[in-house]
Every structure is written in structure tokens, then in C-alpha cells.
Amino acid sequence: MAGEIPVPETMAAMVLTGHGGVDKLQYRTDVPTPRPGPGEVLVRVTATAKNNTDRKAREGLYPVKDKGDTVSFQVGGAPTFTFPRIQGADVAGRVAAVGEGVDPARVGERGLLDFNIYADSRRDINLTPDYYGHGADGGFAEYVAVPSDQFHAVDNPDLADAELAAMGMCSYQTALHMLTAAGVTAGERVLVTGASGGVGTALIQLCRILGAIPYALSQQDKAEALLELGAEAVLDRSQMEDFEARVRAVTGDKPIDAVMDLAGGEMTDRFIDTMIFDMKARSTYPRLSIAGASAGNVSEIMWTRVYLYQVQIFGVSHGTREEAEQLIAWIRSGQLRPVLHGAFRLSELHDAEQYFVDRGSNYLGKIVIVPDSQWPTHGAPFAVRT
């Protein structure tokens, strides 16, 4: 390998041994350190953002046929989420070594991973999405080997590594793909559900970059922070009665142009209501992008409402190479800012998982996981106080 610096033979990692609870996550210090193959870089991990998909994949909550199945998604047709597996998609760190064909000058470079495992080289479409931490080992470890062209240099001195990880592609690229799939443009009114989470806070920022107007659905104790982030108004998700009327009150009686739905369940029908109450006032079709089902995996919708009102529905999983590169450009330019809640040590991932499930009113943004060996520099300044 060209450009290698000393790398230990073994490393610490949190290893997932099967579907189930946090007991299936085992902290080990004797995991063989990966080596970069041709076209790859070995990244010394300094921070990896935690995503809800980590928990859902671990618990097997991605059924696509029988809603009672305990499975992970197999969009490519064959299972890739095999055990043992190291999870963690949104990886920030430093290049520690390079494989054949990669410029040795990249050693020491700080960057952020485009988390996708792409099926081919197409830049504008991603039909069989998979990702690091699912179809290949990810960042809940001290080292990870990834394609060199997907580890993007970000040297902004004002961004700590934990903050950079909090801007990872899993949330931001999903958010951007939700907006681009629905063709959201400047001036349009966009309803963002689940607005206080990683995808929701990304959507608010991205709407403002695109010139769209985001309306957030969240708990009211998050309202001040979401307004500061760029939300035009914050609607209380604990009061869904007369939801259409409350939306009309904040939009000046104008319909929502597009809904970015992370909730699903019985709320989907109410979200559609906010787009179709005055079709004469619209200049585009009503659009619903859905990339989550936190409120339920099954929605009951009258299809007559969908086709008579010409509601366009976009299912969104992961984004494309083009979108990842656009996001990196916005991060480098400072147009996107991190929403970091705090950090946990890698050895404390069980506690981080429980904290995420029990998160209270002070929770906004992302939790990052920092290897214990990197904790004093990259984790301690952002430690979550429990």
C-alpha cells in the first residue's frame, strides 16, 4: 500500500452480532483492522453520527411485504446486512493509509464519507441503495476502509470533527433527495415533519438554500431553535386536531406546495389535506415525499383523493452522487451548519441508543459516537450529560 503510516493490527469496534436489542451490540478491542484495497482509503475515525436507521436495521424493522416480518431491507435482491456487522454510516475522520491507485498525498486529509454503496457509476440515479454500516462495515470503530472518491475532503477550521459528522450524508442527502424528487423550487411552501431530527433540521436548512419556505412540525419546546434554524413557523405535533386550519393560519390561507413526510401512519392523510384545500390557488401539483414512518408503517388513504387531486407521491431512500457532491460544496462554503446535540464514547453506544429512544424536550439534531481513543480531542467537548 502506498502512503501508509503505522496502523495497528487490531482495533476497537462495536460489533452487531444479530437482529435484536442492544445486547446484540458487543464492544470488542480485538477486531482486525481493515486494509484499503485498490481505489480505497483507510480512515481513522474521529466521529460517526448515529442515525435512527441504525436501530431500525438492528431490530429488523424494514419489512416490505409482510408487515410482521423482522428483516432489513434487501433492495438489491439479496441480503447484504449480514452478521457480524459494524454499523455507523456518517463517518468523519482522517486518511490513515491509501490503497493502490490513490494519491499518497491524501494521507492526513480530513473528510466526510458519502455513505452510499452504489451499484454502478451513474451520478444521477441510485436504484438499489445500500450503505456503509449496512452492506459493509461502517464507522462504529476506530478504522474503516471506503472508496477514495466517496471520502470528501472538508478542511473548514471552524468545524470540529463531531460537527462535521453531524452533517453526514445519511440525513442531509436523504433530505436533499426528498426536495429534488418533488421538484421543490424557490418560493414554494414546504411542510417538514419530524423537524427536530437529523433529516428534519437538514430539510429546513436546504429549503432556505433553495429559496423555499419551510414550515416545521415538531414539539413546541423546539420552536425557538427551529425558528432560528430557518423555519417560517413551527406547528405543534401534539395538537393534530384541526391541523389544516392551523396550517392555513400560518401560511395566510395558502396551501402547502409540498410535504416532506417522515411520519407516515394516520398523519399522511392530514398532510395531504394541507395541500388540496384550494386547488385553484395552486400553480403546481401537490407533492408528497416520504422517507420515514415514525408514526406508523401503514397509512389508510382514499385513492380517489390521490388521483382526483393529482397528488404526486415520491418514495425516497438514498440520494445520488451528484447530490452528495452538492452537499459537500455547501458544507465547504459554510452554507450548511451542523445541528449537533452531543457525543458519546464508542464503548457507551448502548447508553447512546437508550438515550436516543428516551430523548426528551432538550433533544435537537444529531448524536455522534467517538472512538474512546479519540474521545479527549473529538468527543469530550461535546459530551452528553445524562
Score class of each variant (00 low, 15 high):
Gly39Asp: 04
Ala223His: 09
Ser148Cys: 10
Pro6Tyr: 10
Ala97His: 07
Leu262Phe: 03
Val146Asn: 07
Ala352Val: 05
Pro157Asp: 07
Ala212His: 03
Ser299Pro: 07
Ile256Gly: 12
Ala96Lys: 07
Ser317Glu: 07
Pro371Thr: 10
His177Gly: 03
Pro104Asp: 04
Gly264Asp: 01
Arg305Ile: 00
Thr386Tyr: 15
Ala12Asp: 12
Gly365Ala: 01
Ala223Phe: 12
Lys56Pro: 00
Gly93Thr: 06
Gly168Ile: 11
Thr377Met: 09
Pro338Asn: 10
Arg35Trp: 08
Gly194Ser: 06
Ala89Tyr: 07
Thr10Cys: 10
Arg337Met: 12
Phe83Gly: 13
Gly88Ile: 03
Gly194Arg: 01
Thr268Gln: 11
Gly292Thr: 06
Ser283Val: 11
Ala119Met: 07
Ala162Thr: 09
Leu349Gly: 03
Asp257Arg: 03
Gly68Tyr: 13
Gly334Pro: 01
Pro36Arg: 09
Thr268Trp: 01
Ala380Glu: 15
Glu322Asn: 15
Gly111Arg: 05
Leu42Lys: 06
Asp23Ala: 12
Phe382Glu: 04
Asp130Thr: 06
Val339Trp: 03
Ala324Arg: 02
Asp137Glu: 09
Ser171Pro: 00
Ala324Asp: 11
Trp303Ile: 14
Leu112Gln: 05
Tyr363Pro: 02
Leu42His: 12
Asp114Val: 11
Asp358Ala: 14
Gln220His: 13
Ile328Ala: 08
Gln374Trp: 01
Tyr215Val: 08
Leu217Cys: 06
Tyr363Met: 14
Glu224Trp: 02
Ser72Cys: 13
Gln173Ala: 13
Ala233Asn: 05
Gly68Asn: 15
Ile204Gly: 03
Leu127Val: 12
Arg123Tyr: 14
Val247Glu: 00
Tyr27Met: 05
Ala153Met: 01
Leu336Ser: 10
Arg55Leu: 14
Thr274Ser: 08
Val184Cys: 11
Gly99Met: 09
Gly194Tyr: 00
Thr268Met: 05
Gly194His: 04
Gly99Thr: 07
Gly197Arg: 01
Glu325His: 15
Gly342Leu: 09
Cys170Pro: 00
Thr180Leu: 07
Ile204Pro: 02
Gly198Cys: 04
Tyr172Ser: 09
Leu179Ala: 04
Gly200Val: 08
Leu176Gln: 05
Ala96Thr: 09
Ser289Val: 04
Ala49Asn: 02
Pro129Ala: 02
Tyr307Leu: 10
Pro79Ile: 03
Tyr172Ile: 03
Glu323Thr: 10
Gln173Ile: 04
Ala89Pro: 00
His152Met: 11
Val91Gly: 01
Gly252Tyr: 10
Val357Gln: 11
Val75Gly: 05
Ser294Leu: 13
His378Val: 05
His350Gln: 08
Gln312Ser: 12
Ala141Ser: 13
Asp23Cys: 09
Val7Asn: 08
Gly292Cys: 04
Thr17Glu: 15
Asp54Leu: 07
Cys170Ile: 11
Asp69Lys: 08
Asp30Ala: 08
Ala2Lys: 12
Ala160Cys: 02
Ala182Met: 08
Val368Thr: 09
Thr128Lys: 14
Gly88Leu: 05
Phe382Gln: 04
Gly265Phe: 00
Ala249Tyr: 12
Gly360Ser: 08
Glu224Asn: 10
Gly292Ser: 12
Gly21Asn: 11
Leu235Ala: 06
Arg94Thr: 14
Gly68Cys: 04
Tyr363Leu: 09
Leu164Tyr: 06
Leu25Ser: 01
Glu9Trp: 01
Ala383Gly: 08
Glu353Ile: 15
Ala258Met: 01
Ser218Met: 01
Pro38Phe: 07
Arg237Phe: 02
Gln310Phe: 05
Phe243Met: 04
Ala182Gln: 09
Lys24Glu: 12
